[in-house]
Amino acid sequence: MLELHSPFSNTRIASATLLDAWQWCYADLKAPTTRGNLAEYLVYLALCSDRTLAEHYKTRKDWDVVDLTYGRGVPDFSADFQAHCHSTRYGWGIEVKSTSSGSKNVQFDLEPRQGYVWNNYISKPYGKAIEIYRRWSDFFILAHFKDDEQETRDIRDLNNWEFFVVPTWAIEQNTIQLSSLRKKYAAIHFSEVKPALDLLIQGDVGHLKLYKLKNDIAKKMYCSGNIELAQKMFCLRAAKKARKKIKPTVNS
């Protein structure tokens, strides 16, 4: 982690610090991107008391295939398999999504994504890009900030948030409206996120193991060069995405 009051180098303004930069850049916590990052931190905060939360995620990791890993994962997979598969080795993968009542569409984006494999056996500093599309997490934790029409609610007050813990294997659509989500899952308070997640893990290990197995095999196949087979077997939307070509820009 960076030191909050560390100064910038080679500037004539000696008093400018990293804290000043963060206050300037992220003063509006309700802006969609910043709110999303804040939601990830809140979930981290809810789970960080557990020693199984991977040290890798003590700070936010852009482009990783998951936002956090939690718990012991699947301990009965072989040692060789675990050594090559980050999510199996370090726990259940969690992806955090957020929305706000102040948004135009109060819905959550659940689309499959690309990402990076963060493995010790890959020498590149940011791991290896996975250029195929899949929901790589085992759980989605959906965070809703209950803002009002005047946008006067304090986003730092956790009573103004509600959370939903959703197993990834149960997701069938790419987006879900908040109203539809409420019909399927109970909204919980920040303080209930960890107990609710623990309860789901204990009660649904069979589905979770199967989904994690597919995720980790897809990662291993991709990293071994079997990209087309990984697409065909585990990433049904990948072929369609890959065929979409970006038109080259022509400089005038």
Rank of each mutant, 00 (worst) to 15 (best):
L19M: 13
R153T: 07
S6T: 13
L47E: 02
G206M: 09
K220I: 00
A143T: 12
N37M: 14
L29A: 09
T33M: 11
Q173L: 11
E3M: 02
R12L: 08
K209N: 02
K240T: 14
S100Y: 03
Y26G: 08
L45C: 04
D198P: 13
N251T: 10
I176M: 00
T168K: 02
L181W: 11
N37Y: 05
A46G: 01
I141R: 03
I227T: 08
R237I: 10
C235A: 08
D154A: 06
G115P: 11
N119R: 10
K146H: 10
S103V: 01
A230K: 00
L158R: 15
N251G: 05
I94Q: 13
W92R: 13
L68V: 04
N37G: 13
K146Y: 09
A196E: 09
G73A: 10
V43E: 00
L19D: 15
F145C: 06
S98D: 11
L236F: 08
T249Y: 05
R72S: 07
Y57K: 05
K220H: 06
K212G: 09
W161F: 10
S180Y: 02
I155D: 04
V117R: 03
H207V: 02
L197H: 03
Y121E: 11
W24L: 15
L29R: 10
L197N: 04
L68S: 15
S180P: 01
P195Q: 01
A242C: 05
L2V: 09
E55Q: 12
Q107P: 11
K183M: 10
R156A: 08
A54S: 15
I155F: 08
K209C: 12
D28T: 09
A83V: 06
A129K: 13
F139H: 03
I188W: 11
L42G: 00
A54T: 12
W161E: 11
R156H: 02
D67N: 12
R153A: 03
F190C: 12
K97C: 14
P32D: 04
E228N: 14
I176F: 09
E40N: 03
W92V: 12
I130S: 01
D157C: 04
G102P: 07
L45G: 03
Q177F: 06
A39D: 11
L208T: 00
L229M: 14
S123Y: 10
V117H: 07
Y185S: 07
K104R: 13
N120V: 08
A46N: 03
A14W: 09
H56V: 11
P7F: 12
H144I: 00
W92G: 10
E151P: 03
S252K: 11
I130T: 05
K128L: 13
G225R: 03
K240G: 14
S191M: 10
V106Q: 02
G73M: 04
S98P: 03
K124G: 06
S191I: 07
R113L: 01
L2K: 05
K245T: 06
R237V: 09
S6W: 02
L45H: 13
T88F: 04
A218K: 00
L208K: 00
P248Q: 08
D157I: 08
P195G: 03
Q202D: 08
D80R: 03
